[in-house]
Computed example of a mutant assay.
Amino acid sequence: MKRKLPNITSKIPPVVAMAAILLLWELVSISGLVPSYMLPSPVAVCKALIGDLPTILFHAKFTLLESFYGLLIGIALAFIFATVMDRFRVMDQAFYPIMIITQTIPTIAIAPILVLWMGFGMAPKITLVVITTFFPITIGLLDGYKSVDPDAIRLMKAMGAGRMQIFRHVKFPSALPQFFSGLKISASYAVVGAVVSEWLGGFNGLGVYMTRVKKAYAFDKMFAVIIFIVIISLLLLFIVNVASRIAMPWLQVEKEKNHE
């Protein structure tokens, strides 16, 4: 019971804050300070979300596929680049500035070029997701590799361990916390990147649906899609948290010991 009490009390502030935001939103809508067609009430948005849910789910299927494929490719590329950059200093010096440059270019500026090169299919959307998710994971892994205790590496070498054994038993496990920190950021970026790319062209997806309802001035449906995207992003973060607990059970044990 003592362990559960801090968990329950820690959830009260965000719930109260969210309730206050919704209440303020409702009051502003009712008061008429902002026209209802520009800022629909939370009730109207919920009705639009429930009423248009089948259509939203249909378009969400394409956005989630683009996000999943892009995130998967981003993780694979990040692992390869971070490992090579950690192994070869010259590669670190060569590629690190290039990765920084890729993050200074707004995604909204890259998307039209990708659509022009790759068409209106899934390819430009997946590519944009890869670009937006690649950097946080790479930097997380790279920092994790560099933060390994040198004494642990020396001990492994003294015991006759090879480079692959040191990487498998010391470097990679030590980099997992930073990897999952980067993955949390990338998971939220993945959906946003896919939606942004869909704004500029395509046949299906939440971004395409948002463009259509915006042109129809159906702002209640527009807000409904935004809330749906927020829910998807929160679910992805939850999945990443669960995966991190499974991959790093020792951290959970340490937390439980600290609470005792």
Rank of each mutant, 00 (worst) to 15 (best):
113 I>N: 01
200 L>Q: 01
67 S>F: 14
53 L>C: 13
77 L>Y: 00
134 F>K: 02
236 L>E: 08
99 M>P: 07
148 V>T: 12
104 T>N: 06
223 F>R: 00
240 V>W: 02
128 L>D: 12
247 A>Y: 10
101 I>P: 09
116 L>G: 12
174 S>A: 15
22 L>A: 04
259 H>W: 07
96 Y>C: 08
178 Q>E: 14
119 G>T: 09
259 H>Y: 03
241 N>Q: 14
204 N>H: 09
228 F>E: 06
199 W>F: 10
147 S>R: 15
63 T>P: 00
60 A>C: 10
90 V>C: 10
108 I>W: 10
79 F>D: 07
225 V>M: 01
167 F>R: 15
119 G>A: 00
63 T>F: 09
235 L>D: 05
127 T>F: 15
171 K>M: 13
139 I>L: 06
191 V>S: 07
188 S>F: 02
138 T>M: 10
215 K>R: 07
57 L>T: 07
242 V>L: 13
249 P>W: 07
159 M>S: 09
45 V>T: 04
17 A>D: 08
34 V>R: 06
241 N>I: 09
31 S>K: 10
5 L>R: 05
91 M>P: 07
29 S>M: 07
137 I>P: 11
208 V>W: 06
91 M>I: 13
49 L>Y: 03
149 D>T: 02
45 V>C: 00
61 K>D: 09
165 Q>M: 11
30 I>Q: 08
188 S>A: 15
17 A>E: 08
20 A>G: 01
179 F>G: 14
232 I>M: 07
138 T>N: 14
104 T>H: 04
3 R>H: 08
153 I>G: 08
10 S>A: 15
238 F>Y: 13
212 R>K: 05
118 M>G: 05
253 V>R: 13
209 Y>K: 08
132 T>V: 11
35 P>T: 02
216 A>S: 08
221 K>C: 04
200 L>W: 00
43 V>C: 08
70 G>N: 15
197 S>P: 01
237 L>C: 12
